[in-house]
Structure formats: structure tokens, C-alpha cells
């Protein structure tokens, strides 16, 4: 679906590379978490996925077609993006206009359009806010509207650039569930940029950037198994990994690295039964 071939990027001709010779691919229907320290290059990579930035060196392919200035419009229909700051994305004076804007550009039939807007506002629990001004909403409500705007466009891939940072605990859980459903039912591909390793655990695969280079690529479990090594690159092992670490120091080991505390406790239970 998306492929980076030896991509480098610098913001100015005379500045150093912030992305250095990376290769990556996102398959159709795959959920990939992109993580890494502040300034590691995640947003820069995200912007190259939908052509907001073009590589300084190397090539980006969308469905095997090289992304160039000539095919930006088609690319953006396929690759939707929710920005790190939702305010950068608002164009309408009301929530309704804002979500409709993208659809009008796509030439969606007006009758069908209203339905799609309603549905995507429901998906983020913001139905009833149609007449509100996007700029006059709370921090988390703004994020929800930005997400609804992209969901309504029905893209094939959605890049979420830290799109859940301001959501309350339930809101975050609901959104992760919505993403999971869309992936399963519609084969949506998801790139989720996040600092929350619990959220990364939802992904099929995790890519870790460190200073503009790919530091790790693999399943979430394999990443968690790195334990304290994560601290060297600005990350921190999640709660379950720290807990498991303590158990290991008491010679209790499990068959596989646990992804959350439920897995850990469940495995201990099975172990206990076997004895």
C-alpha cells in the first residue's frame, strides 16, 4: 500500500537530514504503530506518506505508483491524515461545514454526504455538535472533529499523528475500538503515531524511529521484550513489562512476552493449574 525506498529528508538544502535513508512498507489492511522520541522524525515521515512533503532523496510509492507532485490529488484520496494539532486542519466555520468540505472536494452526492457526515460524527461521539465552531471547542473535542473529517472521506489508509493525546480514557478506548473495527470490516490500513505503548500494542507491527533512522521493526511483543533498552532511545517500558521484569528477577518466566497485565496474570494462572 505504502512503500518508502531509501528515503531521506532535509527541511532546507543547507540543513542536516532529519530522515536518513529509510525503507518501510505498510501493507493493505495492516495496522502499524510508528513510535520514537520527540524529534525522531515521525511527523516528517507521516507528511511524506500523503505528499505534504516530498523526499529529498529516495522514493515513496502508493500502490506501486511513485508519489510525485502530479498525482498528489489521487494520493490524498487514498491516504487520509489526522494532524498532531487538529487546529491546523480546520477549514469550515461550523463542524458540519468542516466535515463536508473534504467530501465536497471529492464530489460526493449531497444526499449521501449528509449521511456520511452523521455517521462519522457518531463514530467520534460528536453528533449534536454540527452547528458549533470548530475553534470554539475543547481540546479533546477538536481532536474528535479532526478525526471525523478524515473518517468521512473513507480513505484506504489513515495516518493518525498522535490523534488521541487529548482524549479522556473512555474516549481513547472507544476510538481504538473504532479503528480496529474499520480495519477488520473495511480493510482500512492504519498508521498510528503514538507515545503510548499500550496503544502500540494494538498494532500488527511496530516501527521505531531513532534520530531519523529505523531502530526497530517487528511485533509489539518483540519490542516490549527489549525492556530497559528502550530507555536509551527516549522510550520507557510499559507497566506490564516492568512488572514482568520483576517476576523474572524471581525466576518466574512465561512462554511469551506479555502485552498487557491480563495476559501476564492469565498465564500465571495457567502455570499454576499445570503444577
Amino acid at each position: 500500500m505504502i512503500k518508502f525506498d531509501r528515503v531521506s529528508f532535509r527541511y532546507r538544502d543547507d540543513s542536516s537530514k532529519v530522515i536518513n535513508d529509510i525503507n518501510l512498507s505498510i501493507d493493505r489492511g495492516e495496522w502499524v504503530a510508528l513510535i520514537g522520541h520527540n524529534g525522531s522524525g515521525k511527523s516528517t515521515v507521516a507528511k511524506m506518506m500523503n505528499g505534504l512533503l516530498l523526499p529529498s532523496e529516495g522514493q515513496v510509492f502508493i500502490d506501486d505508483i511513485e508519489l510525485t507532485e502530479q498525482n498528489l490529488i489521487e494520493v490524498r484520496q487514498k491516504v487520509g491524515m489526522v494532524f498532531q494539532n487538529p487546529e491546523n486542519q480546520f477549514v469550515g466555520t461550523t463542524v458540519l461545514d468542516d466535515v463536508a468540505f473534504g467530501l465536497e472536494n471529492l464530489g460526493v452526492d449531497p444526499e449521501y454526504m449528509y449521511e456520511r457526515i452523521q455517521q462519522s460524527l457518531k463514530q467520534v461521539s460528536m453528533d449534536g455538535y454540527e452547528q458549533h465552531e470548530p475553534h470554539r471547542l475543547s481540546g479533546g473535542q477538536k481532536q474528535r472533529i479532526a478525526i471525523a473529517g478524515v473518517l468521512a472521506m473513507l480513505p484506504e489508509v489513515i495516518v493518525f499523528d498522535e490523534a488521541t493525546t487529548m482524549l479522556d480514557p473512555m474516549g481513547r478506548k472507544d476510538l481504538l475500538q473504532t479503528m480496529k473495527t474499520l480495519k477488520e470490516e473495511r480493510g482500512l490500513s492504519i498508521v498510528s503515531i503514538t507515545h503510548d505503548l499500550t496503544e502500540a500494542a494494538f498494532a500488527d507491527r511496530v516501527l521505531v524511529l531513532n534520530q531519523g533512522e529505523v531502530w526497530f521493526e517487528g511485533e509489539p511483543r518483540q519490542l516490549f521484550a527489549k525492556g530497559e533498552e528502550l530507555e536509551n532511545i527516549g522510550l520507557e517500558p510499559p507497566f506490564v513489562t516492568k512488572l514482568y521484569h520483576q517476576l523474572k528477577s524471581e525466576n518466574i518466566t512465561l512462554e511469551r512476552e506479555p502485552l498487557d497485565f491480563k495476559e501476564l496474570v492469565d498465564e500465571l494462572w495457567t502455570l499454576h493449574l499445570k503444577k
Partner: peptide
């Protein structure tokens, strides 16, 4: 501080 750690990497957050 209004959600001052949103957007910080895990180590930066702690």
C-alpha cells in the same frame, strides 16, 4: 499545567 505531557515521549513525560 493543562495536559502538559501530551505529545512528550515516554521518557520525557516521566
Amino acid at each position: 499545567l493543562d495536559e502538559p505531557t501530551a505529545g512528550l515521549d515516554p521518557l520525557g513525560r516521566s
